[in-house]
Design a binder for these strands. Structure first.
Lengths: 123, 123
DNA sequence: TCATGAACACACTGTTCATTT
DNA sequence: AAATGAACAGTGTGTTCATGA
């Protein structure tokens, strides 16, 4: 097992949630995540978002539809890709989330121990 | 900047501390760390310990001496490598620790947010 | 510029192998 | 088996480039 949780897995967790909340397409989710994490000193790179999305499709959790962004085709021809859960996608996602939670807790345990051991928190 | 703290940096932090405490040589430190982290589901690999140690030497923080392990050379010829701080090693180490602490806190912030956002802790 | 995707290069890491005692 | 080190292979990641609307 790897030392820390992978960025890919971390992002998938958020992307699953965002698709649940119908938060739209890749670029939008990227922007949202960038804004959310900026104060924490983390800027999710564009490539990872798309790769994570592609993997979720490959794993049969999500599927894609395409749509024009604007409502008026004569004005806006920008095509965007929307994501939705497959028939058994929600179950698969639940399982995946469970696995990630385990890994997340493992990482937190390790990092907390490091704080305690090296920078002396008593609690 | 990378997503999570690197294993190498994480281990250097512990190795610096262990050299401060005169906790001996590589293999011993490896064993100690393995035992310490086993309950947390992390097993530091041998290669990373040595690589981390080599880097600390390269960076001018530590230097090496060699010694026979046993006190009786007629019985035990096992040679071990001991590590010590260079003349300005402690200062350099302090600086390094400071940097790692920043990164550690950044990682904890990110992971805590993920716990909160995805698995709903209110505190 | 928005939106998606792919290519490329590289650092980090895990496993294995080598060597000596 | 203890101890150190190096080689090798593979994955994840960041940057850059490409494309269309």
């Amino acid at each position: 097992m790897a030392f820390m949780i992978a960025q890919r897995a971390f992002l998938k967790l958020y992307l699953i949630k965002m698709v649940e909340d119908r938060r739209g397409y890749g670029y939008q989710m990227l922007d949202d995540l960038k804004a959310e994490f900026k104060p924490l000193g983390y800027t999710p790179p564009q490539s990872e978002i798309y790769r994570a999305l592609h993997e979720l499709v490959q794993e049969g959790i999500l599927f894609r539809t395409k749509k024009l962004k604007g409502n008026d085709p004569s004005v806006d021809f920008q095509e965007i890709v929307l994501y939705h859960f497959t028939s058994d996608g929600k179950e698969k996602a639940a399982l995946y989330r469970k696995q990630i939670k385990t890994d997340l807790d493992r990482c937190l345990g390790i990092l907390h121990k490091a704080e305690h051991d090296n920078f002396g928190y008593t609690s």
